[in-house]
């Protein structure tokens, strides 16, 4: 059947392999192996990206299908509820350093860029009465991520651990970091906290909790800081951005 020999240059081998991956024709084991390769081999990752772009024209053939309404609720529960996960042994060291601020700010910028671009490309939405602020925070190791959303019209603050675990006998506490230098952080509640420990923006802060305000997350003993100030390491910090 093979009446012609396939070209055998390395470029073709990798490019064709990338095409087979993007097309989806390979088996589970091969896909897992190639996903690992994408992470460590930038040249191969570029082939994959090129093929994703080449074939993206076919995406118009996927019909839109309205998902059931309960799906959004279920997703929100998963994103905005602290999953009660088993304590993780040997938790990696958490540093308190300026590098966290940079890491957190970078992730937030990227998340915002995505949301903003998707929003711009779509038809204009009805005018909002308030604004929605978002921060995406990630620890320096990148293995623990948080998403914080504030709806200023409803004055609801939602904060969630989206990846990683809460160490045993600990809670992640959310803080507002005043812009004025030397201002003491003010607690915004615990991630996954309930009642008065639930994430919230105190009434006297609502005027300051606006686009660009900085929030931080520290690791505290279970139940949160007893002193009113962070006592554990700050694991992540980022500005909230209007979306």
């Amino acid at each position: 059947m093979s009446d012609q020999t396939l070209p055998k240059t390395p470029r073709d081998d990798d490019s064709v392999l990338a095409a087979e991956y993007v097309l989806g024709v390979l088996g589970a084991e091969e896909r897992i192996a190639l996903q690992a390769r994408i992470d460590r081999d930038p040249d191969f990752a570029r082939h994959v990206e090129a093929w994703e772009n080449h074939l993206a024209g076919l995406n118009t053939a996927f019909d839109e299908v309205e998902p059931p309404a309960h799906l959004k609720d279920a997703l929100e529960r998963r994103l905005f509820t602290n999953i009660d996960s088993a304590p993780q042994a040997g938790l990696a060291r958490i540093w308190n350093s300026v590098r966290f601020w940079r890491a957190g700010a970078f992730a937030a910028t990227a998340a915002l860029a995505l949301l903003a671009i998707v929003t711009l490309r779509e038809p204009p939405s009805p005018p909002a009465t308030g604004e929605t602020l978002l921060a995406s925070l990630v620890t320096e190791q990148g293995n623990t991520r948080f998403v914080v959303l504030y709806d200023s019209s409803a004055q609801t603050l939602r904060a969630s651990l989206v990846e990683g675990d809460t160490p045993a006998a600990s809670d992640y506490e959310l803080w507002f970091v005043p812009a004025a230098s030397g201002g003491a952080p003010i607690s915004l509640g615990l991630i996954g906290g309930e009642g008065e420990k639930a994430p919230h923006v105190p009434a006297n802060l609502q005027g300051d909790f606006t686009d660009g305000a900085t929030i931080a997350i520290s690791l505290e003993p279970a139940g949160g800081s007893a002193t009113g100030s962070p006592t554990g390491p700050v694991v992540a910090a980022a500005p909230v951005k209007k979306i």
Partner: peptide, 29 residues
């Protein structure tokens, strides 16, 4: 699957800037 897809989207938002794809193509991929 769709719930897991959106969780991945959140987790990978940081890698989006590095790609040259349109946002919708990136999400569909």
């Amino acid at each position: 699957a769709v719930q897991e897809i959106y969780i991945k989207v959140w987790q990978r938002a940081a890698s989006f800037e590095a790609t040259g794809a349109s946002p919708m193509s990136w999400l569909i991929a």
